[in-house]
Design a protein around this nucleic acid. Structure first.
Lengths: 178, 178
DNA sequence: GGGTAAATCTTGTCGGTGACAAGTTACACT
DNA sequence: AGTGTAACTTGTCACCGACAAGATTTACCC
């Protein structure tokens, strides 16, 4: 059969990579392993992504898009959005880490940066008009939800409950300025 | 001179590793490069740390100790401690990332976990007696400062100012429960 | 102070990995 | 039909972490 022209190699590689990311972590993700599992040569992934960084950058971009979609669905309430954010992050332990590890990503990749800003704006939107104080509010809100996700994922604080009620209770410690 | 028995190889390797970590990031930190720069054989670092994970674990432990010391000096006020935390994190961009990247560390290493808990307790101490609500307060406080550091280090939000006044203003969005 | 155990470091080697270069095959478009 | 281009392969290189086995030095104990 067709040894050449797999047809949708790029998509399949991304899928396999996402699986590995969640099941085994970034460090276990190698281009050569992906190639083996997809049944192609060891250099095939490089053709599609250039470098390993290129692959991770694409995964991160997809991640921010998924996150933005969830935030968009969560509505206009800051705490609703916060809960949605945390739940998405906790649900994607491998990917979420990659999204924030700038060392692994190509920060000059415009689609990635755009997706990141989009996700940010969905959270900022819950705070009303953009004054100076609102921007600080948004920073605090983002830092809090991001920190909660990282704390949970790191496993450093096993006492954190990630059910909705506990999360909401936690997020309520944040009170936007007057 | 003495080819064998460098005298303080372990300490020198840790120092070189810390330098590389801050100047070039984790990914640029290799045991073999450390060995070259210390003028020893490529396997010498392995003798002292077992694995690369072992080296990073030791660095992280030192990191938490340094962080705990800074928090201890910051006094009893939650916001003072928060500012001190953020400033320490921002001042150690490479190391701070390693400290929270569990994939790179040996989480069963008791000295590391003890140092981590110590740092935590220094922050929790600012909140008074340990009730249920206080613990949630502590979680929120930790998540917020941690998130702020990560946001700054990631460079995703260049608008964050890390001078003391701006940081304090940001941290004030957090109000512990009654 | 002599001998033995342990710690420190070296040499050698293995499998795995990212990256690049050059070649081969299939598709697309005119 | 023919030609350019995209998709993929084979081959290769340097680097890395890890392990094993050996050499050298220190420490300790009688």
């Amino acid at each position: 059969m067709e040894t050449y022209h797999h047809g949708s190699l790029r998509a399949e590689l991304l899928g396999l990579a996402a699986e590995t990311l969640e099941s085994s972590g970034v460090h276990a993700l190698s281009l050569r392993d992906l190639a083996r599992r997809a049944g192609v040569s060891h250099a095939a992934p490089i053709h599609h992504f250039g470098t390993r960084t290129g692959l991770l950058t694409e995964l991160a971009r997809q991640g921010f898009e998924g996150l933005a979609a969830v935030l968009s669905d969560a509505g206009d309430d800051l705490y609703d959005a916060g809960v949605a954010y945390v739940r998405w992050g906790v649900g994607h332990p491998g990917l979420y880490g990659v999204m924030w590890q700038t060392e692994l990503l190509d920060r000059t990749h415009e689609p990635l940066e755009r997706a990141r800003r989009d996700a940010w704006h969905h959270l900022e939107r819950c705070l009303g008009p953009s004054t100076e104080a609102r921007r600080t509010d948004a920073l605090a809100a983002f830092a809090l939800v991001h920190g909660v996700v990282q704390l949970i994922l790191s496993g450093a604080e096993p006492r954190i409950q990630d059910d909705e009620a506990s999360l909401r209770d936690l997020l309520r410690r944040l009170t936007p300025a007057s």
